[in-house]
């Protein structure tokens, strides 16, 4: 494995979880989310020498993910190529977390897609406002206003049962 591959492996490992989680909160099933995340990382590797030098490498990866999701919504998602060792699904029984996740997914789905995307990219993917603007191809000011509208549209009452729990 060369330095470039080492570098990419470290990057991909660090971004894998937020990519999958972002895809889930943008409406994917768990398995589709991993396919989308893998697809984004495969394409990122193809351009890794350039991406690693970019000011916002994450913007590149998430832009692929968002574009892939948009495309998959227009046609059925055909999935990523199978790999030799498919990861196993976590099986722990975490009822409260599942309820919380379902509540958030339901709340996000009630929002317009553009607000869903901004909230997920800002607070799940933890992208900066500027990177979020780059991912979505919108102005920085639009990121601010969509974020504001999206948060304002989330009814605190929907999450009151979760608000006082420790994370």
């Amino acid at each position: 494995m060369d330095d470039c591959e080492d570098d990419f492996s470290a990057y991909a490992s660090g971004r894998w979880a937020p990519l999958v989680r972002s895809a889930v909160l943008l409406g994917c099933s768990a398995s589709d989310a991993e396919d989308v995340a893998q697809s984004a990382l495969v394409k990122t590797w193809s351009h890794w020498k350039r991406v690693r030098q970019a000011a916002e490498p994450d913007a590149y990866v998430y832009r692929i993910m968002v574009n892939t999701l948009a495309t998959s919504r227009r046609r059925k998602w055909h999935g990523e190529q199978p790999v030799s060792h498919m990861p196993e699904q976590a099986s722990a029984d975490r009822t409260t977390e599942v309820v919380l996740r379902d509540a958030i997914v339901a709340a996000l789905r009630a929002l317009p897609t553009d607000q869903q995307q901004v909230l997920v990219l800002r607070y799940v993917a933890d992208l900066t406002e500027r990177a979020t603007a780059e991912v979505l191809g919108i102005a920085l000011g639009t990121v601010k206003s969509r974020t504001s509208r999206g948060i304002a549209a989330l009814d605190p009452a929907d999450f009151s049962n979760f608000a006082e729990e420790d994370s």
């Binding site: 991909a12 490992s13 894998w16 979880a17 937020p18 999958v20 989680r21 972002s22 889930v24 909160l25 768990a30 991993e34 893998q38 990382l41 990861p87 196993e88 699904q89 976590a90 722990a92 975490r94 977390e97 599942v98 919380l100 996740r101 509540a103 958030i104 997914v105 909230l119 607070y123 799940v124 989330l154 999450f159 979760f162 608000a163 729990e165 994370s167």
Partner: peptide
């Protein structure tokens, strides 16, 4: 809560 919900999504290692 949004951040906590995302962390509750189990992700297998890459």
């Amino acid at each position: 809560i949004l951040a906590r919900a995302s962390r509750s999504i189990a992700v297998t290692p890459l």
